[in-house]
């Protein structure tokens, strides 16, 4: 006795047509299909689809495996650890602008940067050199970028004073 309705069968028919059903479920489906022309036609369509499934191109898995071993092109290395807060970056930008303004208003007289060096703590430890504010304006950004938070705060405080 075939009690399964066409609607009940429709959802599982793809699995039967692809050979993914087994046991009593497969037998009940087969019994219905053999006695129902409409479901048999649908099963024939599904079998044709299963039989014509495209296969992966030869060598694709090897290409993917090779690409997996290469460094990622799109994803940059993750940045870990402490990141400088946004206000520090903004303060550094203001400082650079301020230095630039001073440079335009002063003559380029040789200046001893010992005082600045001491304010920057261990970041600037090179021997005192004859240094002009022009030089500082050009080279200031990368140096500031390397400053510790404390050194930068001290510098900003002095600038304000």
């Amino acid at each position: 006795m075939n009690t399964m309705t066409c609607e009940e069968l429709a959802d599982r028919l793809p699995d039967w047509a692809a050979g993914r059903l087994a046991g009593p479920e497969a037998e009940a489906t087969a019994a219905h299909v053999h006695g129902c022309a409409d479901c048999a036609a649908q099963a024939a369509l599904l079998r044709a689809l299963v039989a014509s499934r495209p296969t992966a191109p030869a060598g694709m898995s090897e290409r993917i495996a090779v690409a997996l071993r290469e460094p990622s092109r799109s994803a940059p290395p993750a940045i870990t650890g402490w990141r400088r807060p946004q206000w520090v970056v903004s303060a550094a930008a203001v400082l650079v602008l301020a230095l630039g303004t001073v440079v335009f208003r002063q003559t380029a007289e040789p200046t001893d940067v010992t005082a600045v060096s001491s304010a920057l703590g261990d970041v600037v430890e090179e021997e005192p050199v004859a240094w002009t504010l022009d030089d500082g304006a050009v080279a200031g950004a990368p140096v500031l970028d390397d400053l510790s938070e404390e050194a930068l705060a001290t510098l900003i405080e002095e600038l304000g004073a």
């Binding site: 793809p14 699995d15 047509a17 692809a18 993914r20 369509l45 599904l46 044709a48 689809l49 299963v50 039989a51 014509s52 499934r53 495209p54």
Partner: peptide, 28 residues
């Protein structure tokens, strides 16, 4: 040829219908 014809017609379904049929039938 009949199977290829069925597959060619599948390619002409709207994307969601096509993928729904593919994923249900081809991939289970």
């Amino acid at each position: 040829a009949e199977e290829a014809r069925v597959r060619a017609m599948l390619a002409r379904l709207p994307e969601k219908q096509r993928l729904a049929v593919q994923l249900r039938v081809d991939e289970g």
